[in-house]
Design a protein around this nucleic acid. Structure first.
Length: 416
RNA sequence: GUGGCCAUGGUGAAGCGGUUAACACAUAUGACUGUGACUCAUACAUUCGAGGGUUCGAUCCCCUCUGGCCACCCCA
């Protein structure tokens, strides 16, 4: 028996890697336009960091983290999300002191011990961005604009932007009481989970998919109607900017968050195309997080997108590249001549292939065809002696003879 | 953590108690001794995820395990 990989940990095979590179390259290109720079942080952090940022009672911390002790006895955890580590680095290196605004992005693997299913894996990949240092609604709008443009550049119009406001420590507790009172009135109609949520995380009940709960919470009070004036004004301004720039969005007053640190603006890009996984990207404002982790009271807003989910949406779009030239060879002298010719053309940036299996000429031509090579050329004794060869365009079989030197060959290939 | 469905070659799959384990694609070689695609020929699973049981006989029935998928919870 051979050894298999670990459940929920997958490789990106060559057939998919071009798609992944497209996603990553697009993100880098788009982020650069909004002044975001990459930050690379470790995938392991002290466990305490995640407990303090994500929240001790969240599902992620309670049951989904890959936690272990290192040899010194410190409890370490494979990062389940990216924001905590980035904020830790920002504080540790006092990036906030160098510049009052830090716009950072990251990409890489995250780890959560959940049962794998479509669009959900134990090692998954996120591309995220964080803007720290501004509490102004225009920064919210800029980040939302950037996400929206990123998906446009990826060629996806399907995930739709939904936004909501979760209020702040001034107004959320009061709203929470109003909501709990409402839920208490309808307790009989709620599912077991929602009865439990009433005390742990009542906002979650708004997000329950059980039909009875959906019905029971239909007229539930919404956070957006209970925002304090500062939050209300902020949220209104964000929407104003988005409208002004024609960024399409819709309001979803029932959107909640799984992580404790979110305040005010939250958003998701949702799709119906990924089975149970509707969120392709999600984020929000976290004005208290940096201070909570021991830094200055710097407000921030950020988001992360799930690369696997984006890749699923992009589907079987082909990013396959093909060779420019395949040189078929016959005989040792020709092989040697072909090798130096190939080297010269590759130095010029062309993708050139040749036979590495000692195949028959027919076998080599078949391989040239299978690789999808644009051109082929046969090098045998005749060509070595005469210094001339025939270049064949594979798509239509058209041939032309030429002198056997790399420059003329390169020119012919480039023009056609 | 809970539930449902499923495991046959490199791939997609038929077969559901006795077959030489179909068929298709892919791959290799040849017909075409120096030219791909089309066509034709040949090759390609002593074996049906692993282990046990029932049976004269099990890919097919039963049990256990392992793996996968999907869903719940939750989330990107």
């Amino acid at each position: 028996m051979s050894i298999n990989g670990v459940k929920g940990f997958n490789e990106i095979l060559p057939a998919d890697s071009a798609l992944w590179q497209f996603i990553e390259d697009t993100a880098r290109r788009v982020f650069a336009r909004y002044g975001f720079s990459e930050i690379r942080v470790p995938i392991v952090e002290k466990t305490e960091l995640f407990c303090r940022s994500i929240g001790d009672t969240t599902d992620i911390v309670e049951k989904e983290m890959y936690t272990f002790s290192d040899k010194g006895g410190t409890s370490l955890t494979l990062r389940p999300e990216g924001t905590a580590g980035v904020m830790r680095a920002l504080i540790e290196h006092k990036l906030y002191a160098r510049d009052s605004i830090n716009k950072l992005y990251y990409m890489g693997p995250m780890f959560r011990h959940e049962r794998p299913q479509k669009g959900r894996y134990r090692q998954f990949h996120q591309i995220g961005a964080e803007a720290v240092g501004s509490a102004e609604p225009v920064m919210d709008a800029q980040v939302l604009l950037m996400v929206s443009r990123l998906f446009r550049e990826l060629g996806l119009d399907e995930p739709r932007l939904q936004i909501n406001s979760l209020g702040c420590p001034d107004c959320r507790p009061a709203y929470r009481e109003v909501l709990v009172a409402f839920l208490n009135e309808r307790e009989a109609a709620l599912c077991d989970d929602c009865r439990r949520r009433k005390s742990t995380n009542p906002l979650r009940a708004l997000d329950c998919k059980v039909p009875g709960c959906v019905e029971a919470t239909e007229g539930a009070p919404a956070m957006v109607e209970h925002l304090c004036s500062a939050c209300d004004e902020h949220f209104g301004a964000v929407q104003g900017y988005l409208t002004a720039a024609d960024v399409p969005f819709s309001l979803n007053p029932r959107m909640v968050r799984g992580l404790d640190y979110y305040t005010r603006t939250t958003f998701e890009l949702v799709t119906g195309l990924l089975g149970a996984q509707s969120a392709v990207a999600a984020g929000g404002r976290y004005d208290g997080l940096v201070a909570q982790l021991g830094g200055p009271s710097a407000p921030g807003i950020g988001f992360a997108l799930g690369v696997e989910r984006v890749a699923l949406l992009l589907g079987d779009r082909s990013f396959a590249r093909t060779p420019d030239l395949f040189i078929a060879v016959m005989g040792e002298a020709a092989r040697s001549r072909a090798f130096s010719l190939m080297a010269a053309l590759q130095d010029q940036g062309l993708w050139v292939e040749t036979d590495c299996e000692g195949k028959s000429l027919k076998g080599q031509m078949r391989r040239a065809d299978k690789l999808g090579s644009r051109y082929s050329m046969v090098l045998g004794e005749n060509e070595v002696v005469s210094g001339a060869a025939t270049l064949k365009r594979m798509i239509d079989g058209q041939e032309q003879s030429l002198r056997l030197d790399s420059e003329t060959l390169e020119n012919l290939i480039r023009q056609g």
